[in-house]
């Protein structure tokens, strides 16, 4: 096992290097656009040239690449062309917001997916089973962004239960420490933050969580059905173990591992999903920051955001893989 883990860890910086290079090249394939966008605001010719020099855009692409990599290894992501803000600190503000949303979505996905899967798996072939499977397919087939908008229409416009926009109401004054609302609420003793935050996070989390719950639902369902057919379950039943106990103690435990893996893999997918949910709900996370920067051709912010999202994604996938090996001893021995 040690060898495999080592190999994956060695591969990590290589992957990140390629990711950074791809991001750098993609953003520079259309040269000068950012300056033209900015330049249209300046009428004096000298100002535009000075700006180009300040941003280092007059240098050759190789020089720019060298500077970019040099800064990257020092965790310096540069400054926003448009606002002059330090990209690293922008990432520091927006990444926790996205992680919060991804975790909240994961909670929704887990509850909905496992709940529907257990129910359908416990009664396969029945009307309830068919109904639940249809729901899971429906949820999967809905465009995420559109589902989010439908939730806004129903729960914000018609019922008025939740706010539609942002992460906290502007009336709340919040001095961030870690930028994680729940952690800050504990550190600062500001428990009044929790309810407004929950209200804001509910709809985006439902959007991402429900649309991704189908995979987990189907896996749980199949797991329950397959496990119920095994010899040891038949033995348990023949011994006279009561039905519910067989279900929860014997079947559920054996299905749990497969479920855990899927949850891990889906957590990575949540990051992609939250990009869209953040745009729909005006949620100030790193996905929305990156998309806005791309649309404005704010190179430094876009590449910083893209690299951080990709790096985070790679790390999560690695962690999932390792925890799977840890949880399943058979893989530990075989994975040498």
């Amino acid at each position: 096992m040690g060898g495999e883990v080592f190999r994956r860890l060695i591969f990590l910086p290589v992957t990140l290097f390629f990711v950074a290079t791809l991001v750098f090249l993609a953003l520079r394939a259309l040269p000068g656009s950012s300056i033209e966008l900015l330049g249209s605001q300046f009428t004096t010719a000298g100002l535009k040239e000075q700006l180009i020099a300040d941003l280092g855009l007059d240098k050759s692409i190789w020089e720019q690449y060298g500077i970019f990599l040099g800064e990257l290894v020092r965790f310096d992501l540069g400054r926003s062309f448009l606002t002059g803000k330090d990209v690293s600190s922008m990432v520091g503000e927006t990444l926790p917001v996205t992680i919060e949303l991804a975790v909240a979505s994961l909670v929704v996905m887990t509850i909905a997916g496992i709940g529907m899967g257990l129910l359908a798996g416990a009664f396969p072939g029945t009307l309830a089973d068919g109904l639940l499977r249809t729901v899971s397919v429906l949820l999967f087939s809905l465009p995420w962004f559109w589902f989010g908008i439908v939730l806004i229409i129903v729960f914000v416009l018609w019922l008025g239960w939740f706010p539609a926009f942002g992460r906290l109401p502007s009336s709340v004054d919040y001095e961030a420490v870690t930028n994680f609302v729940l952690i800050d609420a504990i550190i600062l003793g500001r428990f009044d933050l929790v309810v407004p935050w929950l209200k804001h996070v509910t709809l985006p989390a439902l959007t991402v969580g429900l649309t991704t719950s189908g995979v987990l639902m189907r896996l749980t369902r199949v797991g329950v059905i397959e496990t119920a057919k095994t010899d040891y379950i038949r033995t348990a039943r023949m011994k006279g173990v009561p039905g519910p106990r067989v279900f929860f103690r014997h079947i559920l435990r054996n299905v749990a591992l497969g479920i855990l893996t899927v949850i891990g893999v889906q957590f990575g997918a949540m990051l992609g999903g939250s990009v869209i949910a953040e745009v729909v709900f005006g949620y100030p996370g790193i996905g929305r920051m990156t998309v806005d920067a791309v649309l404005n051709r704010d190179y430094a912010v876009a590449q910083g955001g893209a690299i951080v999202i990709a790096a985070f994604y790679v790390l999560i996938n690695l962690a999932t893989d390792l925890s799977y090996r840890w949880a399943d001893p058979r893989l530990r021995r075989g994975g040498r």
């Binding site: 591969f11 992957t15 791809l22 993609a26 259309l30 992609g272 990009v275 893209a306």
Partner: peptide, 24 residues
């Protein structure tokens, strides 16, 4: 396969966004 691994280490939507940025 290593090249494929690297491409797959991107969230799908982010990879597509970058391509669109590069191509217009």
């Amino acid at each position: 396969m290593r090249a494929v691994d690297i491409l797959m280490s991107f969230p799908l939507i982010l990879a597509a966004i970058l391509v669109l940025v590069a191509l217009g």
